[in-house]
Amino acid sequence: MLPKRQVWPSFSKNELKTIGNVPLEEDIRALSAWLKTANDESIFYTHRLSEIYSPAKKYKSVASGILSCIINREMGEMVIWFKPEMITNVNWAGNPEKSVVPSENGLMSLSPRKSFEIWSEVVNNTSEKWMAEEVDSVLRIREIIIADINKKANEIRLLNEKLQAAYEELDTFSYTVSHDLRTPLTSIKTYAELMLKNKSIDDGGKKMLSRILAGADKMNSLIKEILNLARVGRSEVNFETVNIESLIKDIKSEVWSAYKADHSVLILGQLPNIKGDKTMITQVFTNLIGNAVKYSAMVNEPKIEVSSYIDGGEIIYSVKDNGIGIDNRYYDRVFELFKRMDNVKEIEGSGVGLAIVKRVVEKHHGRVWFESKLNVGSTFFVAFKNR
């Protein structure tokens, strides 16, 4: 059984959690780094830490002794217990540091009368020694933790396999249904267009036929978006160097023409190349820039800014607009399929574009998020690994 005064700093995903009186966080992290490299064993303990790890002298009052248990060396996950310094007096039968002296006959000897005088010495930088029961308890704790981790890992693996199977099945279903819908939809549109040319149909009939055509076009656009989403799920990522600046200039011509956005201004910052699938990356920026143009179209001076910055091992691109913005109540719904916010109901859209963006970015092992304020604008960020 471990003594109650023990503390438990634990590491998980670079997090540090402590209980009780422990050294400072930076000291514990430095100690853990040393433990990972200086010791090959899963369990390590000493009651004289500062003698083998000199930085520990500054916190010897709380950690002269340690008992560490490494759970996962690669991830740096471990549990450490500390014991405080315990200053003691050690009595010796004579001064252990006293040198022998030569006698009159030249032999080296101790004085018989003085040699057994009690010599007391103060010993510091040490803690109570770790008992065998404490070490055994830690070994059992380690076995329990690892068994639980393995159990959870297997559960997660099985769930991921089921999710992947469902994901693939949904992709296949979406692709098949969407593809099969295009044929009858084309027939509806063709016959409606033929009927519009019939001079015997009055204005009321023509008005209804025009609505049929508009509905068919909208459905055709939605089917196209669903097929794009399904293709992303089914396609392998073909990594190549993508010239982002050139790609965005091409997207500008297409988007500005589609939305008749001659009054919108596009501002480009630094846009370094990345490694990715050019077709998929094009979908990402087409959707983000297209949304920026659509949702800022009603302001007096619509402005879209595309720029980037490097943060650690990531290149982070941002697409910023000064449009209607997004209510933060809907933050978790933005990237969901077919989800559209209440304040954009009157603006044309399918609710698929951002779902495509999220799936493409995830296939590239990247991240996507946004910041927004109602009636001020939105900024969408996509982060790709700086390969």
Rank of each mutant, 00 (worst) to 15 (best):
G366W: 00
V319I: 15
G312F: 00
I315G: 01
L268R: 11
A297C: 01
Q270L: 09
V352Q: 04
R340Q: 07
F370Q: 02
N328A: 11
V299N: 08
H263Q: 15
A355S: 15
L266K: 10
K275T: 09
K294M: 14
N291E: 01
T279A: 15
G377P: 03
H263D: 15
T279V: 14
K345Y: 05
S372M: 06
N328I: 12
M341D: 13
T379S: 10
S264Y: 01
N291G: 08
G353T: 03
I310S: 12
V284H: 07
D277T: 05
Y309P: 00
L266C: 11
D321S: 10
K320A: 07
E371V: 03
V284R: 07
R367A: 07
G351F: 02
E314N: 13
G313R: 05
E348K: 12
E346W: 04
K339Q: 11
D321H: 09
I310D: 06
R333H: 13
S308M: 09
N273L: 00
G323C: 10
V319P: 11
V368M: 04
A292V: 05
S372C: 05
V344R: 12
I267M: 14
K345W: 00
F370S: 03
V334A: 11
Y309I: 00
P272R: 07
I326T: 09
M298A: 15
S307D: 14
T282E: 14
L268D: 05
I289V: 15
E336R: 14
K303E: 13
I289A: 09
K358S: 11
F338I: 02
N322H: 06
I356K: 06
A292F: 04
G377T: 02
K373D: 06
Y317D: 02
I347P: 07
N300H: 07
Y331M: 11
F338A: 08
I274T: 06
I315M: 03
H263L: 13
K303Y: 00
M298I: 13
E336P: 01
V344W: 11
I281K: 06
D262I: 04
N273G: 05
G312E: 02
Y317N: 04
V293G: 10
M341F: 12
I310N: 10
L268K: 10
P302G: 06
V344C: 08
Y317P: 06
G353I: 07
E348F: 12
Y295P: 09
N375V: 06
S264G: 03
G290Y: 09
F285C: 12
